[in-house]
Measured scan of single mutants.
Amino acid sequence: GQVNVNNTTYTFPTPKLAKEFAQKAAKKYNLTVHVSGNTVTVK
């Protein structure tokens, strides 16, 4: 799974890890998680 945070893309071996990372990043920066297919964007 891929996660985009502040124009930086992070790649994870599983969608589960990507989702967990996205949720932590969203909480940390007070942003929202947007899911589109296999790509998760935090903005």
Rank of each mutant, 00 (worst) to 15 (best):
G1Y: 06
G1A: 12
G1D: 11
Q2V: 12
Q2T: 13
Q2E: 10
Q2P: 13
Q2L: 11
V3M: 11
V3N: 11
V3H: 12
V3C: 09
V3D: 11
V3F: 10
V3P: 12
V3E: 12
V3T: 12
N4Q: 13
N4E: 10
N4D: 10
V5F: 12
V5M: 12
V5N: 12
V5I: 13
V5P: 12
V5W: 14
V5K: 12
V5E: 12
V5Q: 11
V5A: 12
N6S: 13
N6E: 10
N6L: 14
N6I: 14
N6K: 14
N6M: 14
N6H: 15
N7I: 15
N7Y: 15
N7R: 13
N7H: 15
N7W: 15
N7T: 15
N7K: 14
T8K: 14
T8E: 06
T8W: 15
T8D: 05
T8A: 08
T8Q: 09
T8G: 07
T8S: 09
T9K: 08
T9Y: 09
T9W: 05
T9V: 13
T9E: 05
T9H: 06
T9P: 02
T9D: 03
T9S: 08
Y10I: 07
Y10S: 01
Y10V: 03
Y10H: 04
Y10F: 10
T11I: 14
T11E: 06
T11D: 04
T11R: 08
T11S: 07
F12M: 02
F12V: 00
F12G: 00
F12K: 01
F12S: 01
P13Y: 05
P13D: 10
P13Q: 08
P13N: 07
P13V: 05
T14P: 01
T14G: 04
T14S: 10
T14V: 02
T14D: 06
T14M: 02
T14H: 04
P15N: 11
P15Y: 08
P15M: 11
P15Q: 10
P15R: 09
K16F: 09
K16Y: 08
K16V: 07
K16N: 08
L17C: 10
L17K: 09
L17W: 05
L17V: 05
L17G: 04
L17H: 08
L17Q: 11
L17N: 03
A18D: 01
A18Y: 00
A18H: 00
A18L: 02
A18W: 01
A18N: 00
K19G: 05
K19A: 10
K19Q: 14
K19D: 06
E20T: 06
E20S: 07
E20N: 06
E20R: 12
E20H: 07
E20V: 08
F21P: 00
F21V: 02
F21H: 02
F21S: 01
F21T: 01
F21A: 03
F21L: 01
A22D: 00
A22Q: 02
A22K: 02
A22W: 02
Q23R: 14
Q23F: 10
Q23P: 00
Q23S: 08
Q23T: 10
Q23W: 12
Q23K: 14
Q23L: 12
K24Q: 11
K24W: 15
K24A: 10
K24M: 15
K24N: 08
A25L: 15
A25C: 08
A25S: 04
A25K: 03
A25Q: 06
A25G: 02
A26N: 06
A26K: 13
A26Y: 07
A26D: 03
K27T: 09
K27G: 06
K27E: 13
K27D: 09
K27R: 09
K27W: 06
K27Q: 11
K27F: 07
K27L: 12
K28D: 10
K28H: 10
K28G: 04
K28N: 08
K28E: 11
K28I: 11
Y29S: 05
Y29D: 05
Y29V: 05
Y29A: 06
Y29P: 10
Y29N: 06
Y29R: 04
Y29G: 07
Y29K: 06
N30P: 04
N30H: 12
N30F: 09
N30V: 03
N30R: 07
N30W: 13
N30Q: 07
L31F: 06
L31N: 04
L31A: 08
L31V: 14
L31E: 03
T32W: 07
T32A: 09
T32Y: 06
T32P: 05
T32V: 13
V33R: 00
V33M: 05
V33I: 07
V33E: 00
V33L: 06
H34K: 07
H34G: 04
H34L: 12
H34T: 14
H34F: 14
H34P: 01
H34M: 13
V35G: 00
V35M: 04
V35A: 03
S36A: 09
S36L: 09
S36N: 12
S36K: 09
S36D: 11
S36V: 13
S36R: 08
S36E: 13
S36T: 09
G37F: 04
G37V: 03
G37S: 03
G37M: 04
G37R: 03
G37C: 03
G37E: 05
G37P: 00
N38K: 07
N38P: 03
N38L: 07
T39M: 09
T39Q: 08
T39R: 08
T39A: 05
T39W: 03
V40M: 02
V40D: 00
V40G: 00
V40Y: 04
V40P: 00
V40Q: 00
V40R: 00
V40L: 02
T41A: 03
T41M: 07
T41G: 02
T41N: 04
T41P: 00
V42K: 01
V42S: 01
V42L: 08
V42H: 01
V42R: 01
K43G: 08
K43R: 11
K43E: 13
K43L: 15
K43W: 15
K43Y: 15
K43I: 15
K43V: 15
